[in-house]
Computed example of a mutant assay.
Amino acid sequence: MSAPETLHATCVAINEHAILIRGASGSGKSGLALRLLTLGAGLVADDRTCLWREGGTLWADAPDTIRGRIEARGVGILSVPATGPRKVALVVDMDEIETKRLPEKREMRIMGIMLPVLNKCESPHFPAALTLYLRTESTK
């Protein structure tokens, strides 16, 4: 197991697999996570995510101080059941907007592990597509 690192990222999971949502403050990380939570995802971590590597797997969990808590702008801090640790299967980059209907495949290396990356999509279907991705693509 590698030494844990904490990233400025939010993380949600469906079953065993997680989406790591990266981006600058105010980019919509927590907002996307809230939409995914309403579609059945579980909260791993909001705003700060602890990552570590075990073999060829990247794991994510919440720091103890924020476990089970997510910020909802204009509402406050909400408490939800904590889910974690989970295996990271996908990265969403909230700082880049996807403009292509069928984007090329992208990858990002985190802690020496290559992971697929999707850019932020401003279409209303994006959270549903991410949910289906975790349920289908991440298990291949």
Score class of each variant (00 low, 15 high):
residue 113 I to F: 13
residue 63 P to V: 08
residue 116 P to L: 15
residue 123 S to P: 01
residue 130 L to C: 02
residue 99 T to K: 12
residue 120 K to I: 00
residue 19 I to N: 06
residue 136 T to E: 13
residue 112 G to A: 05
residue 58 L to G: 10
residue 18 A to Q: 06
residue 126 F to S: 07
residue 134 L to M: 11
residue 20 L to K: 05
residue 36 L to D: 01
residue 124 P to I: 12
residue 129 A to V: 10
residue 38 T to N: 11
residue 108 M to S: 10
residue 19 I to Q: 01
residue 50 C to F: 05
residue 49 T to C: 05
residue 117 V to Y: 04
residue 7 L to G: 00
residue 41 A to I: 05
residue 13 A to N: 13
residue 104 E to I: 10
residue 116 P to A: 15
residue 47 D to E: 07
residue 131 T to Y: 12
residue 69 R to T: 09
residue 7 L to E: 05
residue 120 K to L: 08
residue 41 A to K: 00
residue 104 E to L: 14
residue 131 T to N: 12
residue 52 W to P: 01
residue 123 S to T: 09
residue 12 V to A: 06
residue 26 G to W: 01
residue 77 I to C: 03
residue 58 L to N: 08
residue 20 L to S: 08
residue 45 A to E: 12
residue 8 H to Q: 12
residue 57 T to N: 09
residue 78 L to P: 12
residue 117 V to S: 11
residue 4 P to G: 09
residue 21 I to W: 06
residue 85 P to C: 02
residue 33 A to T: 00
residue 55 G to I: 08
residue 84 G to K: 08
residue 45 A to F: 05
residue 10 T to W: 09
residue 98 E to H: 01
residue 134 L to S: 04
residue 54 E to K: 06
residue 63 P to F: 04
residue 133 Y to G: 12
residue 11 C to P: 02
residue 6 T to P: 00
residue 39 L to A: 10
residue 86 R to N: 02
residue 7 L to Y: 04
residue 71 E to C: 13
residue 107 E to Q: 14
residue 88 V to G: 11
residue 118 L to T: 14
residue 95 D to W: 04
residue 31 G to K: 12
residue 38 T to A: 08
residue 6 T to H: 02
residue 97 I to M: 13
residue 37 L to F: 14
residue 65 T to E: 15
residue 108 M to V: 14
residue 115 L to Q: 02
residue 5 E to K: 08
residue 130 L to A: 01
residue 5 E to T: 07
residue 62 A to Q: 05
residue 14 I to M: 10
residue 138 S to A: 15
residue 29 K to S: 03
residue 79 S to A: 15
residue 49 T to N: 03
residue 3 A to C: 05
residue 54 E to Y: 07
residue 54 E to T: 12
residue 25 S to R: 05
residue 96 E to S: 04
residue 53 R to F: 13
residue 108 M to H: 07
residue 9 A to D: 04
residue 119 N to V: 10
residue 57 T to M: 14
residue 118 L to C: 15
residue 48 R to Y: 03
residue 38 T to G: 01
residue 46 D to Q: 02
residue 105 K to R: 11
residue 106 R to H: 08
residue 50 C to I: 12
residue 139 T to A: 15
residue 45 A to K: 11
residue 92 V to D: 00
residue 33 A to S: 01
residue 77 I to H: 06
residue 79 S to E: 15
residue 138 S to V: 11
residue 75 V to M: 12
residue 63 P to I: 07
residue 54 E to N: 09
residue 103 P to H: 10
residue 14 I to A: 03
residue 41 A to Q: 00
residue 72 A to R: 07
residue 140 K to N: 14
residue 129 A to Y: 03
residue 60 A to D: 08
residue 115 L to P: 01
residue 125 H to E: 15
residue 2 S to M: 11
residue 18 A to V: 02
residue 54 E to L: 05
residue 91 V to C: 09
residue 88 V to R: 00
residue 57 T to H: 09
